[in-house]
């Protein structure tokens, strides 16, 4: 009853946003959940009205009505048979709507939850992986399987506009199938408290038309940087490569997010600030202010010029 009373409020909130809203589905799985939500809302609203009516009768009704309400058959039907039928129907409906997929997905993407970012790996048909982080590109209209793991604590993967949420549990692999019906940017958020800057652990799913996605995947398989790229020398000498990898160079760290194409991501620091040279420089020198508690130490040792060189190099990786 309390949740029913809070619903209108939630509906009003959901109306504000389309990038991250379970009530404005942009994919098949999210649409199923939305349907289920509306069914639940309708049925439970009806039940609420019946209960309130019975309550009113019990207090204000005639002696006759009250005698009827307290009869054995009224309790058996209203209190046992009715809830059993309604709940069974809702359960059956829910299970049918959320039945597991039987077809193969067009694409498999591995996502590993880490404190406090997302490691993303596109598994290609030839078995190789494209490494990325904090932004996931998918083709519109194709089923995509997300293979969800965690390397530290429990996280939860949730893109409300595309589907339900699923926990990422250390030592366990969960699978989630999603499909975007129309192009767009859909925001995802860690939905299980995972310590410190949990609230700043987000990501974006970018749904591209199939041809665009194919072109991007082709391009993403090729490194954009070499060790000769200007600025890489400072990046490497500052030790950045011990935590961050950049394809095509000697930087191969796996402690922090892969930066091979960091410049093309719309957002940085796990979708907490827009990607730009200035923001990258801020995050290097002053990251604890922008994302308090994150595991990247502030590199106050670097001169402003060094920081700027590194930021400019990274912003060009696209």
């Amino acid at each position: 009853m309390r949740s029913a009373a809070a619903l209108p409020f939630c509906l009003a909130l959901g109306g504000c946003s389309t990038v991250q809203s379970a009530l404005s589905p942009a994919g098949e799985q999210a649409a199923q959940i939305a349907v289920l939500t509306w069914i639940l809302l309708g049925v439970l609203g009806g039940v609420l009205l019946i209960v309130l009516g019975a309550l009113w009768l019990a207090i204000r009704g005639s002696d006759n009505a009250r005698r009827l309400l307290s009869a054995d058959w009224a309790v058996s039907i209203g209190g046992i048979a009715f809830p059993a039928v309604v709940l069974t129907a809702l359960l059956a409906g829910g299970l049918w709507l959320m039945r597991p997929a039987t077809t193969d997905a067009a694409l498999t993407i591995e996502v590993e939850g880490r404190q406090w970012w997302w490691r993303v790996g596109y598994v290609l048909d030839d078995g190789t992986r494209i490494e990325a982080a904090n932004e996931i590109r998918i083709p519109v209209g194709q089923e995509v399987d997300f293979v969800l793991t965690s390397s530290d604590v429990i996280h939860s993967f949730w893109v409300p506009s595309l589907g339900g949420k699923l926990d990422m549990i250390p030592g366990r692999t969960n699978r989630l199938r999603l499909k975007a019906e129309r192009p767009g940017i859909y925001r995802g958020q860690c939905a299980e408290y995972c310590g410190g800057p949990h609230a700043l652990m987000a990501f974006e799913v970018v749904a591209l038309p199939e041809a665009d996605f194919a072109a991007w995947r082709q391009a993403a398989g090729q490194p954009v940087s070499t060790v000769r790229e200007s600025g890489f020398d400072v990046f490497a000498a500052a030790g950045c490569g011990s935590c961050h990898a950049i394809a095509g160079t000697s930087a191969n760290g796996r402690v922090g997010p892969d930066l091979s194409r960091v410049g093309e991501r719309r957002m940085m620091a796990a979708a907490t600030m827009p990607t730009s040279e200035e923001n990258i420089a801020r995050f290097i020198a002053d990251g604890q202010r922008h994302k308090p508690g994150n595991l990247m130490p502030e590199f106050d040792v670097l001169t402003d010029e060094q920081t700027k060189t590194i930021a400019s190099y990274l912003a060009r990786l696209k």
Binding site: V234, A237, G239, S242, G253, V255
Partner: peptide
Amino acid sequence: EGDAARNIPGCVQCHDNRALPL
């Protein structure tokens, strides 16, 4: 190389002769 699972970066990237003199 460090140990990524425990968030330990390698030592040499900052501490060998190719690193910044900082």
